[in-house]
Design a protein around this nucleic acid. Structure first.
Length: 573
RNA sequence: GCGCCCGUAGCUCAGCUGGAUAGAGCAUCCGAUUUCUAAUCGGACGGUCGCAGGUUCGAGUCCUGCCGGGCGCGCCA
């Protein structure tokens, strides 16, 4: 397919006598206008003729037998536009050949070979179960990891779990005092959550508890082995086991699990390094870096590295982690998949890197995303009260999927596995279908609906394509020489199939998986409409052959795209 | 007050680096199943692209101002 685009640009450049870079090839809004088009405004200006005249002149030059004719392509002028239509048989064969040759790699490339992308995602806090507030980072980060891998990058997914901080002093004390009151054996995660919440309250209301909590945290920070550290380790291990189970369900893996505690010993060297650079100052007893010289917007918000009481802060730990990551991985990009409420924080970190004059500062990116809102657009706060545990949500959606399968396809084999995949597909797609920056209103009824622009819709489309292929194989159909002329009406699908690589690349550049989601929705819509009108099986052998080739290629592309998002393509549902 | 983000159909959103009559899904209404899975498909209804200027041959897209909503703003993470 690419060779058509290249040939067309070259031909237009030659016919218009301009440099190839001034020729912009784009997809017309309306398919009827053509497969590709060149608006002739700029070309006309360069040559001093009116745009419609330019378009007409180019169309003539590119007519069959003309000096710049491109094989299999018809050029026509429509006002100031030059439209191209690629002959369907040639287009179909080129696209299908590419898809078949690349297989699971289709849509990918090797452009990232030898380059590393660090992706910090999910990063839940220990002692609490993962709740719905964590799904965005988790699902976005996992999708980005797959997208970059598909483009040949070496990805390093890091789970920066929150396993450090003063709150663990309180938790340790709560465990010490009340461990007999909750079931830490059978339901350790829920038990810990209970104790965690009680410790939060106790720290505020009970001065004695507060004092003990502070002492416990100091003990933890000291690095000494002992009961406090042992308890903390146990909490970490229990929590991680819970997270791992959820990740496994979602098909998500991290390459490294490095909590905040990992950087414990790097904090002082990090501070020393920044102090040595001479950019720090003491303000109101705290060690800070002024940022206004590199970012005017940060005039009133310097970066705090050390509190008056001597302890470090969030920013200190993140800076330590950034330095460490750059030294260890020499990343091409380092992505932080973290909510947009932390924009200021990351802007500050980048400003510190700028003040240090580190050339790799632009490679650090905050891949931010909008808020998760509850019904009525109120913020779904994790600290107060009832939050929806992620596993419970998954269970609920999977149950609904199972119910619908029972209703629509009671004879389906392996219905439980399919229900799991459909339920998870619904949740994952719900989080990837909109632009990252958009807030997500957590609407359970929407997640439980499997109609319209949903993961199950895409999986259903895929399953139907699979079903047609299965039946064709069983009938021994599709072996005849395809009659490509019957794909005359499949132009939009063919052009779309050809575009996956561009879409994946764009999604990577902008760290925006929704671009793939929207592409897949459009592809599925095209396909569902198409095969209603174009019967595949039982037609003349050449007709069936050509249509089967389209189905096969489409299934492959749809499957690849779903895989990138983290949704299982299903053979039946 | 300052900084940043968002503002397209009743609701939720697409609209690629500005380009040809602004597109989907949901909701509402009508229709399609003797044939490849109706978790589908077709049709109808529905839009001064927040407002006002500006740049441009051309602006939903770029610039400025305003309005509305949200997030954040030194010793939490």
């Amino acid at each position: 397919m690419q060779h058509f685009a290249d040939a067309l640009r070259a031909a237009v450049a030659a016919a218009a006598e301009v440099g190839i870079d001034t020729v912009r090839l784009e997809a017309p809004r309306d398919e009827k206008q053509g497969d590709l088009a060149v608006p002739c405004f700029l070309l006309a200006k360069a040559r001093g003729i009116p745009p419609p005249a330019m378009a007409a002149k180019l169309a003539a030059a590119m007519a069959p037998g003309g000096p710049q004719a491109v094989a299999e392509v018809t050029a026509s002028a429509a006002g100031p536009y030059l439209n191209f239509r690629i002959a369907r048989p040639a287009l179909a064969q080129a696209v299908f050949a590419e898809i078949a040759a690349a297989g699971a790699r289709y849509g990918g490339s090797s452009e990232g070979a030898g380059k590393r992308i660090v992706i910090d995602f999910s990063s839940p806090n220990i002692a609490k179960p993962m709740h719905v507030g964590h799904i965005r980072s988790t699902i976005l980060g996992a999708a980005l990891t797959r997208i970059f891998s598909h483009l040949g990058y070496t990805t390093v997914g890091i789970n920066h779990i929150g396993d450090w901080g003063a709150q663990f002093g309180g938790l340790v004390v709560a465990i010490r005092r009340w461990r007999g009151e909750v079931d830490l054996e059978r339901e350790p995660v829920r038990g810990l959550l209970d104790l965690y919440q009680r410790s939060k309250a106790a720290v505020e209301s009970d001065p004695a508890f507060h004092e003990e909590a502070v002492a416990a945290y100091r003990e933890l920070e000291s690095g000494r082995e002992g009961p406090v550290r042992e308890t903390w380790r146990w909490v970490t291990a229990v929590s991680m086991r819970g997270f791992e189970a959820t990740y496994k369900r979602l098909g998500i893996e991290h390459d490294l699990v490095r909590g905040e505690s990992y950087y414990e010993n790097l904090l002082e060297p990090t501070i020393q390094r920044i102090v040595a650079a001479g950019i720090t100052e003491i303000s109101e007893g705290a060690l800070i870096v002024q940022l206004s010289t590199v970012d005017k917007g940060l005039k009133e918000t310097p970066c705090l590295l050390r509190q008056t009481n001597g302890t470090t802060l969030y920013a200190t730990r993140d800076l330590a982690a950034m330095f460490q990551r750059f030294e260890e991985f020499g990343f091409e990009r380092c992505l932080y998949v973290v909510g947009s409420e932390q924009r200021l924080h990351f802007r500050q970190l980048k400003a510190v890197l700028k003040r240090l004059e580190l050339p790799w500062e632009p490679r650090v990116e905050h891949v931010d995303f909008g808020l998760l809102l509850g019904p009525g657009r109120v913020k779904l706060a994790s600290r107060k009260g009832a939050v929806l545990v992620l596993d419970d949500l998954i269970d609920e959606v999977v149950d609904e999927a199972r119910r619908i399968i029972q209703e629509k396809n009671p004879d389906l084999a392996q219905a439980d596995q399919v229900a799991e995949a459909v339920g998870i597909g619904a949740i994952v797609f719900n989080d990837l279908k909109r632009e990252r920056v958009k807030d997500v209103v957590f609407d359970k009824s929407e997640i439980l609906s499997f109609e319209g622009e949903t993961g199950p819709y895409l999986q259903y489309t895929h399953a139907r394509l699979a079903s047609i292929l299965r039946k064709a194989a069983a009938n021994g159909e599709g072996t005849a020489e395809p009659d490509w002329s019957v794909l005359e009406n499949a132009g939009p699908i063919l052009m779309r199939l050809a575009r996956l690589g561009d879409v994946v690349r764009g999604a990577a550049v902008r760290a925006e998986p929704s671009e793939i989601s929207n592409y897949l929705l459009a592809l599925a819509r095209d396909l569902n409409s198409w095969y209603v009108e174009n019967r595949v099986l039982g037609e003349a052998p050449g007709v069936t052959g050509a249509r089967l080739a389209l189905i096969r290629a489409s299934k492959s592309v749809l499957g690849n795209g779903l895989g990138l998002l983290g949704i299982r393509p299903l053979e039946a549902m």
